[in-house]
C-alpha cells in the first residue's frame, strides 16, 4: 500500500492505494465522488474525464500515484459551493444533457477547451470534445451549449 496525497475539488485527502489503483477508482470507490463514470475503463469514451492541474485527463487510464500532490477538479467542484458554473448552466439551458452519463466528462472537456481558447468556433469545439463520446444527443446541442457558455463567459470577464 502507498500513501497518496491529493486535492479534490479544493479538499485535501490522504489515502492509501495499491500500485495499480487508478485515479477513477480513487475518486469513485475511495472518495465516493461519483460524477466521473466508468463508461468503458479502456480510455475510449471520456465519461471518466477530470481535470488534473487544469489538464483534461481520462481518470480510468491515470495511475493514482501519478497525481501525487496534484489538484483534481470534477464537475462537483467546478463551481463555488451553492453556485452553478456558466458551462453547467449553458448545458442545462441548451439541453446539452440527455441521459446525463457523459455530461460530467463532457463539461470538463469543454472547460479545458475554454481555458485554452475562450472564443472557440464550432469546429474548435468539435476538436476539443472529440475524445468524449455521447450516444444520446448527436452532439449538436452539446456544441450549442459550449458556444453559449463561451459567449457568456467572455462577456463576464470583459
Amino acid at each position: 500500500m502507498h500513501l497518496l496525497k491529493l486535492t479534490v475539488n479544493g479538499q485535501n485527502y490522504e489515502i492509501t492505494v495499491q500500485l495499480k489503483t487508478t485515479l477513477l477508482e480513487v475518486l469513485r470507490d475511495k472518495l465516493q465522488i461519483t460524477s466521473p463514470k466508468a463508461g468503458c475503463n479502456q480510455g475510449d469514451c471520456g465519461t471518466c474525464s477530470v481535470l488534473v492541474d487544469s489538464i483534461l485527463v481520462k481518470s480510468c487510464l491515470t495511475n493514482s500515484l501519478s497525481v501525487q500532490g496534484k489538484k483534481i477538479i470534477t464537475v462537483e467542484g467546478l463551481a463555488k459551493p451553492g453556485e452553478v458554473h456558466p458551462l453547467q448552466q449553458a448545458f442545462h439551458e441548451n439541453y446539452g444533457a440527455q441521459c446525463g452519463f457523459c455530461t460530467p466528462g463532457m463539461i470538463l472537456a469543454a472547460k479545458a477547451l475554454l481555458d485554452k481558447n475562450p472564443n472557440p468556433t464550432r469546429e474548435d469545439v468539435k476538436v476539443g470534445l472529440s475524445g468524449n463520446l455521447c450516444r444520446c444527443t448527436g452532439y449538436t446541442k452539446i456544441i450549442d451549449s459550449v458556444i453559449a457558455a463561451s459567449e457568456k463567459m467572455v462577456t463576464v470577464t470583459d
Binding site: 468503458c40 479502456q42 469514451c45 470534445l129 463520446l133 448527436g138 452532439y139 449538436t140
Partner: peptide, 19 residues
C-alpha cells in the same frame, strides 16, 4: 470489444444537421 474498434460517431463525424 472496445469503443475504438466498435466506432460510434464522435463530434468529428457529424455534418451540418437540420432537425
Amino acid at each position: 470489444d472496445n469503443l475504438s474498434d466498435y466506432s460510434i460517431p464522435t463530434t468529428m463525424d457529424i455534418p451540418d444537421f437540420e432537425a
